[in-house]
Design a protein around this nucleic acid. Structure first.
Lengths: 203, 203
DNA sequence: CCTCCTACCTACTCATGAGTAATGTTACGG
DNA sequence: CCGTAACATTACTCATGAGTAGGTAGGAGG
């Protein structure tokens, strides 16, 4: 029996580009679940429906693979935010659109988000730089928005940190809730950040 | 030569309690630097000035050791916050004191903070539960404070997430700055959270 | 129909690090 | 002083997983 239908799977030969995408997809899932060190190349190759040597042939070492994941997911996130912010000009609108793009990414590419935010940040060496650079860029964009909105120079960076941190934490909460949308998260955070808590109670 | 002065170090026998403290101290430092998986028991035992089997004898497996670190550092943090909040009664004062205790912990027990926040959260299994429980408790305390301050029930939890997230992110920023104090971080965050960004610019 | 090229796989090697067995050694009660 | 129990070490075993050598199969060109 030379029936190549091993089980209807893709034993078929595929172009390199397609395989690389499959590998990266699987890698992001596995890295997000287990973290860099606990993730095994065997599990990733399984997930990609490919054998281990293929990963080494196409994407290089484990470190290279992780870097590739970070680059792809980080690129997606940065592009999404930059695109959304560029569509409007008023600072508060920019903030809203930026946050909205951010939350959309978190909800749509949940695993990618976890790799970027939770996993990559704790790894030392080359990864840390990669992530630090991206995060820095994000903070910078937010800080510039705040500065344009009239925030004092010295305050804009720490405030940007606080804002981004709040967004990240709210994402965590949102991922556990059944019916959240990027819009509802954005509105929540905008309300919190723009209005403040001061309106509450007596005070 | 039976000179026991190997090099003036503590080759002297010490009571179990002291050794355990040394081990935990070293473990927190190593775990914070390398993360759970990359940390080696050999490096920890070196740091503690003790040989590896002693760790296994006193604290059990690597997993047990990590759990012990989390428990100790987490306990310190929770106690510090609870103590500080209990000293006052007005919601905004409670918030200030709670945040202040939080930032003090981050600055004073930097490694402990990194283990709790950066390392433990990304590990699956038992650690995640441990941390999730603690974080949940913290969020709960904050949410209750917010509710007492007049925040709507449905909003208090997500807002607490945002606030705690902002505090965590601001800590990250603060750890990189040379001259921050717990007070300055607290004031910054209180200003951001209480007043909001709405006061900025035209709007 | 052959044949070569390249995608692809099975089955290994080898370093690393968790955990342990066997073995001193020091302090203290008797 | 001497026995014993807790303190402490050296030098191993053994599982795991990154990375690879060398063979197999499918499709394009003749």
């Amino acid at each position: 029996m030379s029936t190549p239908a091993k089980s209807g799977t893709s034993r078929r030969r595929l172009p390199r580009e397609v395989r690389e995408t499959q590998m990266l997809d699987a890698a992001v899932v596995v890295f997000s679940r287990w973290g860099y060190h606990s993730a095994s190349m065997d599990e990733i190759s399984d997930g990609a429906g490919v054998s281990k040597p293929m990963i080494y042939a196409y994407l290089g070492s484990k470190e290279d693979l992780f870097t590739a994941c970070i680059r792809r997911e980080g690129g997606r996130l940065m592009e999404a935010i930059a695109g959304a912010v560029g569509e409007v000009s008023r600072p508060d609108e920019q903030l809203w659109h930026g946050l909205h793009a951010f939350f959309r990414f978190v909800l749509d590419y949940r695993d990618g988000w976890i790799v970027l935010y939770r996993q990559a940040r704790v790894q030392g060496g080359a990864f840390a730089e990669e992530i630090a650079g991206m995060r820095h860029q994000m903070i910078l964009v937010v800080a510039q928005m705040l500065a344009r909105a009239g925030c004092a120079e010295a305050d804009s960076t720490p405030t940007a940190y606080a804002l981004v941190g709040a967004a990240e934490a709210l994402s965590d909460w949102g991922l556990e809730q059944p019916d959240v949308t990027a819009e509802s998260l954005t509105d929540r955070l905008m309300d919190f950040a723009w209005t403040g808590l001061g309106r509450l109670g007596d005070r």
